[in-house]
Design a protein around this nucleic acid. Sequence first.
DNA 1: GATACTTTGTCAAGAAATTATCAAATTTAT
DNA 2: ATAAATTTGATAATTTCTTGACAAAGTATC
Lengths: 223, 223
Amino acid sequence: MFVGNAVTVMQEKEISQAVIGRLPRYLRYLGDLKEKNIERISSQELSSLMNVTASQIRQDFNNFGGFGQQGYGYNVEYLYDEISKILGLDHNHNFVIIGAGNLGKALGNYLNFERRGFIFKGMFDMNPALIGQMVRDVQIKPMEELEVFLRENTIDIAVLTIPKTGAVGLVDTLVDNGIKAIWNFAHVDLDVPEGVQVENVHLSDSLMKLSYNISRYNDSKEQ
Amino acid sequence: MFVGNAVTVMQEKEISQAVIGRLPRYLRYLGDLKEKNIERISSQELSSLMNVTASQIRQDFNNFGGFGQQGYGYNVEYLYDEISKILGLDHNHNFVIIGAGNLGKALGNYLNFERRGFIFKGMFDMNPALIGQMVRDVQIKPMEELEVFLRENTIDIAVLTIPKTGAVGLVDTLVDNGIKAIWNFAHVDLDVPEGVQVENVHLSDSLMKLSYNISRYNDSKEQ
DNA sequence: GATACTTTGTCAAGAAATTATCAAATTTAT
DNA sequence: ATAAATTTGATAATTTCTTGACAAAGTATC
């Protein structure tokens, strides 16, 4: 009797976040190529297009298996589809936005997310003045209804566009009601249980980096 | 006779962007400590607070010179001020927002940038329906007035919240009229001359990373 | 004021990421 | 069909980033 292999977990090599972070950019360039009806591309061509080394491109793609062919290069459409799958864009993700301020509304109105399978399902806010307003085809609901809504709908992602004070206390509610991932625009680090994903967008951090690079360049000029 | 040293330009060690990227987070924690009137902190304490190694903290700070003292640790306020200076937050940066859509308005209304010395000076859009509207104390102007405005005011930063097609063609105008840095929300890579800083905020890339991490975790669970 | 304790700054080691190199596979040209 | 050119995937070399270790310098205690 053969046992043992049945439960063998394929120890997949962990892909570094550095690699993952580059995939969306590859996808963007491949999408552009597809629109231009370009059928194939070599790592060398893509390299000069994207300003990264050809070696890195091949290395990155090879983390997921051989997508290319010697002497030919990569088939644009095939590669595009494979990267889409890797990024989980081959199936839909429902999301709710919590915080119906300017930023929340901006994200709710952003149609391109839908094209990638991110479906805007609900929006919540504490402010009574906002309740009932429409953002696209979604009506803003009071925060009290969030829990029930999450239980009655299959929502993967919560987008947090509320001040940091509110954000921290909300995590438990979200996680307890099935949220798998948080796209966090609040300027605070969230503490989530193992298995819940957090992606931070700290806009002011980004602006500070820009500020540093301005100063650095000016200082180096002065010398 | 000793010559040579006179013209020796202090070859400052280039600080890696990895380090710079961590500075805003340090600043945030130090700000919180300051608010709690905590006077001093050791790398060890900060380490457990921020979930990074104490060694990395000391290494990071030491890139800029010794901010601490053996046996004592770091003075919170002093360290806060020094990091602020490094990030160029000790003087103001004026910015304009180009693109008065939802995202542009959201950023224009975000008051916290002002606290850090980023001053909202102007807003421009192509859409005639938006011209004249107020965003805080700034009136939306037509794109035709952008060039003159940039010449007549000292603006460091242009915030691009327009679709990518418009963004690429705008770079030359911005750079020719004194813009030193672009905070780019358009989903495209901008080609700028040496010395002009670009910080990209590619929201859909960020969302895709989140999507990958959701899939990855679910897949690993299934096995 | 002497001693024990704390904690930095620095240097070395280790790990991770990037780049270079090249054999093997395939395509293109003759 | 054969030879020349192209290009991947894999491995090795290099570089960068992170972590560990510890002497030196300070603080706190008795």
